[in-house]
Simulated scan of single mutants.
Amino acid sequence: MGSIEAVLDLDKMRADVAALNEKAAAPDLWDDPEAAQKVTSRLSFLQGELRRVEDLRRRIDDVNVLFELAEAEDDADTRAEAESELAAVHKAVGELEVRTLLSGEYDAREALVTIRSEAGGVDAADFAEMLLRMYTRWAERHGYPTEVYDTSYAEEAGIKSATFAVKVPYAYGTLSVEQGTHRLVRISPFDNQGRRQTSFAGVEVLPVVEQSDRVDIDESELRVDVYRSSGPGGQGVNTTDSAVRITHIPTGIVVSCQNERSQIQNRASAMAVLSAKLLERQRQEEQARMNALKGEGSSWGNQMRSYVLHPYQMVKDLRTEFEVGNPQSVLDGEIDGFIEAGIRWRKTQQTAAA
């Protein structure tokens, strides 16, 4: 526990909380709502992290006392209670240890997540919507705010794609291990012959761009289209042409936003997504150059997780071998085990590469 506290640097954390408290108390804080939101979000996150560490330290001290009491009184019930609490504390320490492994350049950022249906027709579109629900439920379980920027609905069922933000520090470092191709095997509810169907959906995770990032976007290289927002089945969501689609002509990257706000707000959100994609493109190009110099390719495989609903029930990560026998709980957002295993696996890969 001491080594974890040292890595997290509790003294710096307390100093940061004090500084942010001063900023949050400023009477002109909300003159700039975006900056204010960042201050309050960062403050809330650090206060939660600090409380988590301090509570865990108290639990460790308490469990030691409980074992001493059980030993002194030779009481089986107290000893059983102490052992149960020790197991719970051990699990909590492991979860906190994972947080210390998020030390990448962009790991502390908020995250932009895009989910796309891939091979598998209507089943793939339905699976993409299942994954969207899985991640938003995961965020809800943790109290993380999310904002959906764009959803493209498929004709029969499900979605073609969706982009949303997870607005909490370290969301990128945490969710980046979810990137890749997800595979679903089940009896298709859309097949009147009840045949087994395999379908695929892709997950992309990007760090939110900050002012310190160097992402140069020439307005003359953008094509901006406005259109009317639409929901499932073509139903109008907004009565005005407020949805925005931006095409970055040199790279061919296309982003859109239609989350029922004004055209100006949708344009700003679309530009934020475009900036994140261009930043990631720069990062990948730099990584490719580094790999070329080292004479090796990426160690990341594309297909990363299998969700099997028939003929047996299992969700398995193909990189870490972590698996769960209850797919419904996973699809309901209980994915922390997969995320923690993925973060540990990534650290092992990075250490081996170094």
Results as ranks from 00 to 15, higher is better:
336 D>V: 00
147 E>A: 13
116 R>M: 01
349 Q>F: 12
285 E>V: 07
202 G>R: 00
224 V>M: 10
53 V>H: 09
159 I>V: 11
7 V>C: 01
189 P>A: 11
212 S>C: 14
70 A>N: 07
157 A>F: 06
4 I>E: 01
316 K>S: 07
183 R>T: 02
42 R>I: 00
170 Y>T: 04
262 S>N: 02
15 A>K: 04
50 L>C: 13
113 V>E: 08
218 D>V: 03
161 S>D: 11
100 T>P: 11
30 W>H: 12
106 Y>K: 09
135 Y>N: 06
335 I>C: 06
306 S>G: 06
321 E>N: 15
148 V>T: 03
329 S>H: 13
283 R>T: 06
101 L>P: 00
323 E>F: 07
289 R>Q: 15
211 Q>G: 14
177 V>I: 12
31 D>W: 02
22 E>R: 14
274 L>Y: 09
345 W>I: 06
178 E>C: 07
55 D>W: 00
148 V>K: 05
259 N>C: 05
7 V>L: 13
125 A>M: 08
33 P>V: 00
42 R>F: 04
62 D>L: 10
8 L>I: 14
251 T>R: 02
139 A>E: 00
344 R>Q: 04
160 K>E: 09
334 E>K: 14
85 E>T: 08
92 A>K: 03
271 M>N: 00
37 Q>M: 15
202 G>Y: 08
185 V>D: 02
86 L>E: 14
347 K>A: 04
98 V>G: 05
297 G>Q: 04
33 P>Y: 01
180 G>T: 02
7 V>W: 07
79 R>D: 13
22 E>F: 10
197 Q>L: 06
165 A>N: 06
82 A>G: 10
326 N>T: 00
12 K>L: 15
268 A>R: 13
334 E>N: 14
182 H>W: 08
108 A>T: 03
255 V>A: 06
191 D>Q: 04
326 N>A: 04
14 R>S: 15
178 E>A: 07
51 R>H: 15
312 Y>H: 12
350 Q>N: 15
13 M>A: 10
169 P>G: 10
302 N>H: 13
326 N>M: 01
136 T>E: 09
204 E>T: 04
85 E>A: 12
134 M>H: 08
120 G>C: 07
332 D>F: 05
319 R>S: 07
343 I>P: 03
201 A>E: 03
278 L>E: 01
270 A>H: 07
7 V>H: 08
30 W>P: 01
320 T>V: 09
